[in-house]
């Protein structure tokens, strides 16, 4: 892939991909284990998301709830302008997740989901309950922030991590890579609406840079599809519905995030992934 491909890349690939998909670039998982304290430099405090209560988005939502749509839209616009200059999370299909934990995303440890904890007061205490994966050498320091890693962590072999991802995929969870501190991919999440904060921020409030769409879209192969409907209900992005006229499912390519949950639910291999950039008008839809 040459430089000319940049136009149809998502911003993370452009900045961090070195010519390829950014989450396949080992550099974005590379992390040191130690740091010496620079004289005069104070450690940045970890806030654990508590600042979210006073965030711009919270002000925007309160304005919207009070009927002040102008203020709401203005704040959302400002957040988007700022987010456009930074990396964010991205949706990716199960197979990419598995490749990642088999190869470059080590170490990998299962842990609780901070979104579900925040939104539904979930407490995940063991491997039977954990639903998120933490990546990188920072996981060796998890005990430093026991509240962030509430319920502990469990380091996994690549095979265990793949099984873990498959399990949550079956349960209908969307996979995404989350970056921390600009360019370091620190999490491989299994997410669903409404618990998941990034999905919600994008779908409900148009904070499109917080969660970028996947590299592909899903497409139905109507020759193979028998209309069984196994895929219905898997989509969290309002892209997939049952179309009565043809008695088969319909996927809106503009709405599709390429999470491939509909595909992994299909027993007839009737849904396939198509690279976004293959379609003239989709290559800019991230």
């Amino acid at each position: 892939m040459g430089r000319e491909a940049l136009d149809d890349m998502c911003r993370m690939c452009e900045w961090l991909g070195d010519g390829d998909i950014w989450y396949k670039n080992p550099r974005n998982y590379a992390n040191r284990m130690y740091k010496l304290r620079e004289p005069g430099k104070k450690a940045t405090p970890f806030t654990g998301g508590a600042e979210g209560l006073a965030s711009g988005l919270n002000r925007a939502i309160q304005a919207k709830a009070d009927g002040d749509l102008e203020t709401y839209q203005q704040i959302i616009k400002e957040i988007n302008e700022r987010d456009a200059t930074r990396p964010g999370g991205q949706v990716l299909p199960l197979q990419d997740c598995i490749d990642l934990v088999r190869d470059i995303g080590t170490p990998v440890a299962a842990m609780h989901c901070i979104c579900r904890k925040t939104t539904r007061a979930e407490e995940e205490q063991s491997i039977n309950e954990y639903s998120c994966l933490g990546l990188g050498t920072g996981m060796f320091k998890w005990e430093r922030w026991p509240e962030r890693y509430r319920g502990g962590v469990q380091f996994l072999t690549p095979e265990q991590a793949a099984e873990f991802l498959e399990y949550w995929d079956q349960r209908g969870m969307v996979h995404m890579v989350m970056q921390e501190g600009g360019d370091f991919i620190g999490g491989l999440c299994n997410c669903d609406y409404p618990d998941c904060v990034p999905i919600r921020q994008r779908v409900d409030y148009g904070l499109n840079y917080r969660l970028t769409k996947g590299e592909n879209i899903c497409e139905v192969d109507y020759e193979r599809c028998n209309g069984c409907g196994e895929c219905l209900g898997r989509c969290q992005f309002n892209a997939l519905k049952y179309e009565a006229t043809i008695d088969k499912p319909n996927i809106d390519p503009m709405m599709c995030f390429g999470c491939a949950l509909c595909m992994t639910a299909c027993n007839r291999q009737a849904i396939r992934l198509v690279p976004r950039r293959q379609y003239a008008a989709l290559q800019y839809v991230w």
Binding site: A50, L53, T118, R144, P146, E147
Partner: peptide, 16 residues
Amino acid sequence: AVFAVHAAKIVRGVET
């Protein structure tokens, strides 16, 4: 899912 809950403060080395 209107509500959210956060630790009032996150303390290093401490599980709230």
